[in-house]
Simulated assay, not measured.
Amino acid sequence: MPRFGYTLMGEQSGPRELIRYAQAAEDAGFDFEVSSDHYSPWLMSQGHSPYAWTVLGAVAHATSRVELMTYVTCPTTRYHPAVVAQKAATLQILSEGRFVLGVGSGESLNEHVVGEGWPSVDTRQSKLVEAIEIIRELHSGDLVTYDGEYFRVDSARIWDAPDSPVEIGVAVSGDESIAAFAPLADHMIAVEPDAELVEKWSAEHEGESRKIGQIPICWDPDRDAAVKRAHDQFRWFAGGWAVNSELPTPAGFAAASQFVRPEDVADQIACGPDLDELAESVRPFVDAGFTDIALVQIGDEQQDRFLAEAAEPLLERIRALG
C-alpha cells in the first residue's frame, strides 16, 4: 500500500503558517511531510521562501508521528555537503529518527544566489556524487578528511551524530542519474509518474528502496477559483524539469510561462471540489509503482480549509486506489 504525504510548500506560505499546517496534516492522517528547500519562490505571486531547515526543526517538535523529508536539498552550491551532513544529523535527533534527507542536483533559481555560477548538468551530478559520499562518511561519527575533485573536507566530525544513519533519497530523471546514484542512495525521488524509471532504479539498486513522488492539486469549493489560483501560482509547472532547473529568477519563470493559459494548467493539474477527480489524478504514480506520494495543495489561502474539510476524505479515496 503506498504512503501519502503532505507538502510544506515554502514558496507559498510563511514559516509560522507552515508549522500550523504541519500539525494539521498530521492530525488529518498524512503519513509523511516533505519540505521544499528554496531561496526564492517560483513566481512572485507565491511570495514566500523561509529557511527550510529552521522550519523543519520547529515541525519536528510540533509533530510526533509523521516522517519528515527535504524535497529536495541541493548539497553542492548554496550549502557545502559537510554543513548538510550536520544539519541532517541534528534534525534526525530532533525528530527522534523521523527524518529522510532528500537531495538533488539543484535549480539555478536557488543556487545562483551565492555567485558561484551555474554548472552543466554533468558537473552538477558529479558534485552530487561527492556530496553524498561526504554526508555518508560524516554520519558515521568518525573524523573525516575528504579530498575530491569538487569538495574538500578537513578533519571534520559530526559531534551529535544520530544513533542510526540518516537515510538518503536522491532525485533522478534518467539512465545516467540512476547509474550514478542508485549505488549511493537509499531511495529514489522523481517528479514524473514514470514506470520505466522505477523499473530501472529497482534493477540498479541493491535491496529494498522507496520510490518517492510528488503531485500538485488545487482543491477549492469553487472550481473556477481553483483554476485561477493554480494558473496564478503554479503555471511554472508546465515548463518541465529541463527548463525549470535552468531559469535563475521568478521574473524568468514569469516570462517563460506568460503564454500558459488557465485551461492549460487545468489540463495538467486537478482543480476544484471533486475529491474523486483529485484522487484519480494520483493514480498514475500508484500505477507506476511509487511507494510514497506527496500532495501539494496549491496556494496558501485555502490550506486551513483544505486540511480541515477535504484532506481526510481525499486520503480515503486515494488510499482506495492502492
Rank of each mutant, 00 (worst) to 15 (best):
P50F: 10
P50L: 10
Y51N: 01
W53C: 06
T54W: 03
V55T: 04
L56A: 05
L56Q: 04
L56T: 02
G57A: 08
A58D: 13
V59D: 02
A62C: 10
A62D: 11
T63D: 10
T63V: 06
S64F: 13
E67C: 07
E67S: 07
L68S: 04
M69I: 06
M69S: 02
Y71E: 04
T73I: 10
T73S: 05
P75F: 14
P75T: 09
T76Q: 10
T76P: 09
T77S: 05
R78L: 09
H80P: 07
P81K: 05
P81N: 07
V83I: 01
V84A: 00
V84N: 00
A85V: 04
K87C: 06
A88R: 01
T90E: 04
Q92S: 05
Q92E: 07
I93G: 03
L94M: 10
E96P: 02
R98D: 12
V100M: 12
L101C: 12
G102H: 07
G102V: 06
V103L: 09
S108F: 13
S108A: 14
L109G: 04
V113Y: 00
V114I: 07
G115Q: 05
P119E: 11
P119I: 12
S120Q: 12
V121T: 07
V121M: 09
D122E: 13
T123Y: 13
T123N: 12
T123R: 13
T123G: 14
R124E: 14
R124F: 15
Q125C: 14
Q125F: 14
S126C: 13
L128Q: 14
V129Y: 15
E130F: 15
A131R: 08
A131Y: 14
A131G: 15
A131M: 14
E133W: 15
I135H: 05
R136K: 11
E137P: 06
L138A: 10
H139V: 02
H139W: 08
G141V: 01
V144D: 01
Y146S: 03
G148V: 13
E149Y: 11
